Amino acid sequence: MNGYAEKAYEAFGRLDVLVNNAAYSAESDDAAVKAQFDTNVFALLRLVRAVLPNLRKQGSGTIINFSSIGGLISYASKGIYCATKFAVEALTQALATEIEPFGLKAVAVEPGYFRTSFLSSVASGANIAPPLAVYDETPAHEARAAFTQYNGQQRGNPKEGAARKWEYVADKGLLKGKEKLLRLPLGMDTGGAMRELAAELNRTAEHYEDVWSSTDFKQ
């Protein structure tokens, strides 16, 4: 317990509510969190900053930022990785609006589980918070086991995924003539997750309509 918590207990005798206004995975150390954000978010920003001046001058170009199905839905045991991909989603959405006046596009590519070595790295302990025995037989550890079992069984074909990304930029193949939207979902799992998320957001908005509609100044 840090000094601030001790002071609160001394002042009030008890704590009933904890509000975490800033957050990172409490059970992965700062260095691991920073390393993943540096690779997944800050490296992306550095590259965007590096190319934008020339793209603005030429008045054309597309910036592809790799998000993930984990940029739509966060999963047990992968909260930090998913948080980086949520950040990519937010940055890309803002970037697309900022660079549109210069004739530029930004797209968040959202692959699902493709048959690559990514899950092998998860099984080895990369891109995932260290296991804690206290979470045995909980969804967190069940998710870890599922990642290992699923490795090599992913439905996504990397060659087809790469082809769709090229077609988005080149206006060819399945993407020819299609309006190029902000997000490019790839994989049946991502498409399904996107629809589930849309339905959940709609259900939440309807469920709390009397709540969110009560908080504005009365006209």
Results as ranks from 00 to 15, higher is better:
I99Q: 11
A106V: 07
A50F: 09
L119E: 04
T62H: 10
V122Y: 06
D38I: 01
Q58W: 09
S28C: 05
G61H: 08
S28N: 00
V122I: 05
N65T: 03
F37E: 00
A96K: 13
Y113K: 07
G61T: 10
V48E: 06
L72E: 07
L44M: 15
K85C: 03
L72M: 09
K78L: 13
L52G: 04
S121L: 15
S67C: 13
L95T: 10
K85R: 07
K34M: 14
D38S: 13
G103E: 11
L45G: 05
I63T: 01
R49W: 10
S74L: 02
F42E: 09
A32R: 00
E89I: 08
D29L: 00
L72H: 05
A32G: 02
A123T: 07
E110P: 06
D29S: 03
S117H: 11
E110I: 06
E27G: 06
L52A: 02
A106Y: 03
E98P: 14
F86T: 12
N65R: 05
N40H: 10
F102V: 02
G71P: 10
R46Q: 14
V48Y: 05
L44R: 09
V33F: 02
L45R: 11
T116D: 09
A90M: 11
A108S: 14
K105N: 13
G112L: 13
T39M: 03
A123L: 02
I73A: 10
L95W: 10
V51T: 07
A50T: 04
L95Y: 07
G112V: 14
A96V: 09
A50H: 13
K78F: 08
E100Y: 12
I64K: 01
